[in-house]
Design a binder for these strands. Structure first.
Lengths: 198, 198
DNA sequence: TATAAGTTAGTTAACGTTAACTAACTTTAG
DNA sequence: CTAAAGTTAGTTAACGTTAACTAACTTATA
C-alpha cells in the first residue's frame, strides 16, 4: 500500500498515524501515542522520520497523491465537464468515507496555521481541488453545459463550500450518517442547480 | 463594551484574548501569552477566571450573544424571509469583518474537539445559525419566495457552506481581500439561485 | 562484522495551575 | 475617628505533566 518510496516500517508508521488521526483527531497525535500504538519506543521513530513535522508532511503527501490519482482518473475516463464534476464529487466522497482521517486532516488548517511547511501543504491541496473544479466549470460554461449567468469562480465556491460543510457536519457528528448517501443527494441538487437550461 | 456582568479586568482579559486569537490563532493562546500581553502575571488571571476553559467559554458566550443580537434584529426589522436571509448574510459578514477573531473561533472545532464543554458550545453556535437559516428558507418556500424544488435543508447547506468557504479563504489568505465586497457579490448570486422564478 | 533498528535514560521547553505571601484598599467595631 | 479585620488583586516560586527530541548503548540482521 501507500507508495513504494517508503520502507515497511515507514508505511506502518504512516498508516498507524492516519488511523490515530481518524479516531482521535490530529491534535491528539503525539509521538508517544503513535509509537506506543505500534509497539516501539519513541526514539525508534526517529530512525524512520527526522521529525514529527516530516511525518505529517508525508501524511499530507499521501493524501495529496491519492487526490491526484482521482483527478487524473476522472480526466481520462470522462469527457463532458459536468460529468467530470459529478464523478469528482462522488469519488471524493467515497474516498473520505473510506478514510475518515482525511476529513480530520482537511479541517486541520487551523492547527497547522503557524507551521509554515504544513499549512502551505494543506493550502496546496485545497488549491488543487479548487483549480480542478474551476477549470471544469469554465470549460462547461464554454461548451454550454454549465450556466453562464454566474461567474465560474462563484459556481466552484458553491460546489466546494456546500460539500465541505456536509463533510464537516459528518465529522462533527462523529461520522454518524452515511456520507455517500447524503452526498449523492446533495450532488444531484448541485448539478441541477449549475446546469444550463432546466 | 462586551457585557456588564464582567468586571473591568475580566473585560480587558477577554478583549486581549480575542485580539491574540485574531492575530495568532486560538491554539497559540496560552495563559502566559495572554497575561504577558496584558501586563500581569499568570496567577493573577486566576483571580478573574477559574480556568482557561472558563475563559474560553466566556469568549464563546460573547460571540454567541452578538450573533443572537444580529438574528433578533433581523427578525424585528424585516418581514420577507428572503430579505431576512439577505440581511443575515450581510450582517454576519460585516461582523466577521470587524472581528477577525470570530473567524478563528468558528474554525476551531477541530481544536476544541476533545474538550466536551467547548466543543458543545461551538456546535451550539453552528446549530443556531443553521436553524435560523433553515426556518427562514422553509417559510420562504411556503410563501413562494424561495424555490420549492430543492429541500430546505439542502438550500440552507448551500447558503451556509458557500459563505463558510468564503470566510475560510479570507482567513487562510490572512484577510487579504475585502470580505464584505466579495461576500456581497456571492450573496447576490446565492439569493438569485434560491429565488422562485427568474 | 558492519550497519540498521531498537533500547534506556535522559534533555529542554512549554503548558495550566497552585501555594504562600503582600500591598493597598474598604469595611467594621470600640 | 481610629484601629482592627477583611477583601481585592497582585506577586514570586514552584508544581506536576506533557511535548518533541537526543546521546549513548545494545541487539538483530544481511
Amino acid at each position: 500500500m501507500i507508495v513504494d518510496r517508503y520502507s515497511k516500517r515507514q508505511q506502518q508508521i504512516i498508516e498507524a498515524a492516519i488511523n490515530l488521526i481518524a479516531s482521535d483527531g490530529i491534535q491528539k497525535l503525539s509521538i508517544r501515542n503513535l509509537t506506543r500504538n505500534i509497539g516501539i519506543t519513541e526514539p525508534a521513530l526517529y530512525r524512520h522520520f527526522d521529525s514529527k513535522q516530516d511525518l505529517l508532511i508525508e501524511i499530507l503527501n499521501y493524501f495529496e497523491e491519492t487526490g491526484k490519482v482521482i483527478n487524473d482518473e476522472i480526466c481520462t475516463i470522462y469527457e463532458r465537464p459536468l460529468e467530470c464534476i459529478e464523478k469528482f464529487l462522488l469519488l471524493k466522497l467515497e474516498n473520505l468515507s473510506r478514510n475518515p482521517a482525511l476529513a480530520s486532516v482537511i479541517f486541520s488548517e487551523e492547527i497547522f496555521r503557524y507551521d509554515g511547511r504544513l499549512s502551505k501543504k494543506v493550502q496546496d491541496i485545497m488549491r488543487k481541488n479548487r483549480d480542478f473544479i474551476e477549470k471544469l466549470v469554465i470549460t462547461g460554461q464554454e461548451t454550454g453545459e454549465v450556466r453562464s449567468d454566474i461567474p465560474g469562480d462563484q459556481i466552484s465556491m458553491i460546489i466546494l463550500g456546500t460539500i465541505r460543510l456536509l463533510v464537516k457536519r459528518w465529522r462533527l457528528s462523529d461520522f454518524s450518517f452515511n456520507l455517500e448517501d447524503e452526498g449523492r443527494r446533495l450532488k444531484d441538487t448541485i448539478i441541477g442547480l449549475i446546469s444550463e437550461g432546466k
